[in-house]
Design a protein around this nucleic acid. Structure first.
Lengths: 155, 155
DNA sequence: GTTGAAACTTAGTTTCC
DNA sequence: GGAAACTAAGTTTCAAC
């Protein structure tokens, strides 16, 4: 794998904020010509440094109910766990799946339309799954920050 | 605020996946002409339906250490709590802040370079803050899914 | 091998119906 | 909303370092 010089890191930091900035505009913040910038950005999109470019949609298109579900697994066999993870990953209601250290194994952030939909989701995905020992739910009252940006230092 | 017909919702669902798709390309999935699509997308970017367009950068630019911190607040006064939240929001190491129901009030996802940086962050931001009663940390072993996409139904 | 400028191509915007 | 003319941005080429 390649590595990233200060220009690449600057570009990544800026594109994390706004992926639609033009090369000419980026040249105001990065000391390279627009064509060099365009080349680097395209290359990083091609080689997987930039995994995706996504529109962030306002929460108001909802209404949405979010819940953080702490899941404790039955770790007697690996395959049922992998199956559960693949099942959860595939669901559009699941925004986040983190494997964590501690008594709970998984943190799953679920977004649904209302409480009925949450209960249906939990029953279908967790209540009946052989890999799930138990789970606890915390409902989200408010999102104060929600970003995928990494803290990229200029090296 | 306006509302969103099935075309808008289709476009939002598609742009959540790939914000760089051209209007011509989107016309393959949405039954509108490229010019109608371009108009709708531009309007949704202008009116705040699309809050931002962000590049998703691969985790391999790290190395990163992530931790989910459950924070219990001292809810005797509101202003110290708001101050803490603003302080956390401003930090690039903080990807997520969720206010939740239950014994803990805040879930904070923190990304740092290593364990020293985490301890420095926790000491500076939480250990010394008057609004924080206590906190518990779960370190992230793996991210299986991490997206900001809402589950948008076609209406 | 990468830069920067210019020619070229593609996509977005504006105008009109 | 859709089509065409127009404008702006991305891509390719090429000379220089």
């Amino acid at each position: 794998m390649r590595d990233w010089d200060r220009y690449d890191r600057q570009l990544l930091a800026l594109l994390q904020e706004d992926a639609l900035r033009t090369a000419e505009d980026l040249a105001r913040d990065v000391a390279l010509s627009p064509s060099a910038i365009a080349r680097r950005v395209r290359r990083m999109r091609e080689d997987g440094t930039i995994v995706a470019d996504r529109a962030v949609v306002a929460e108001k298109i909802g209404p949405f109910l979010s819940a953080m579900v702490d899941v404790q697994l039955d770790r007697h066999a690996l395959e049922p766990v992998e199956q559960l993870l693949r099942k959860l990953e595939a669901r559009p209601e699941v925004q986040t799946i983190l494997e964590v250290a501690g008594p709970f194994d998984l943190l799953v952030l679920v977004v649904v339309a209302n409480m009925d939909a949450f209960n249906a989701f939990a029953d279908a995905m967790l209540g009946s799954d052989p890999a799930v020992r138990r789970y606890e739910t915390r409902f989200v009252k408010r999102r104060r920050k929600f970003t995928t940006a990494w803290p990229i230092s200029p090296v």
